[in-house]
Amino acid sequence: MWTWFHRLASPPTFYRLANLLTPWLLALALALLAIGVYGGLYLAPADYQQGDAFRIIYVHVPAAALSLSIYMTMAVAGGIALIWRMKLAEIAVVTAAPIGASFTALALITGMLWGKPTWGAYWVWDARLTSELVLLFLYLGVIGLNQAYSDARTAARACAWLALVGVINVPIVHYSVQWWNSLHQGSTILSIDGIAKPKISGPMLWPLLLTLAGFYLFFGAALLRRMQNEVLLREKNARWVQELFAI
């Protein structure tokens, strides 16, 4: 098990594996997204309250779910990077941050575009919206911190510490709608009573599950691509890189 782990963690193995995996991940992600978006925009019926405005759910919820999952990924990779000094984990921390920031910004903006026609306001300072904005600043903090150091490994470790400190915000975002009064509604899918008695009807649910899966696979592909770049940058003078691109 450990030899397998170390093999995978070696940059050349990772690079080749990622090369194999990424096109498939990306193709599957885009296929799921295409079907999910078509289902969400055309096949799903309009909502009894919100009419068509609810269709924003098919991009807003996956973006918001990813914004939390990517941060969790960063924190776990950060822990591994700090404890075991694993290079690939360091790389994962710094390369996940820009992807996470982009999906957090997307969650915030699609949320505003959903809030205006339904709530009647683009923005309010309730616990959910505020904590999600804090999440965006945490991502920007990691990105900034990474650029502040000239040594890549020192930078990655500093980012790992920040990722670990900020991970407390992840449960806060998720549970904000339960712990505090908020304008934002509760969780539709990730709730205990929602599993027993679905809070969204079947024809509206399946496109959401497809776009969710599509977003997650897309993140996998995007992260692998960025990690490959970072591996190349750090190892650009290594023999395997030179051999890989020898003309």
Partner: peptide
Amino acid sequence: YAFFIWSSYALTALVL
């Protein structure tokens, strides 16, 4: 609602 819906999907496409 069209403006809000299409803007959301367009921005999503941009981010992807």
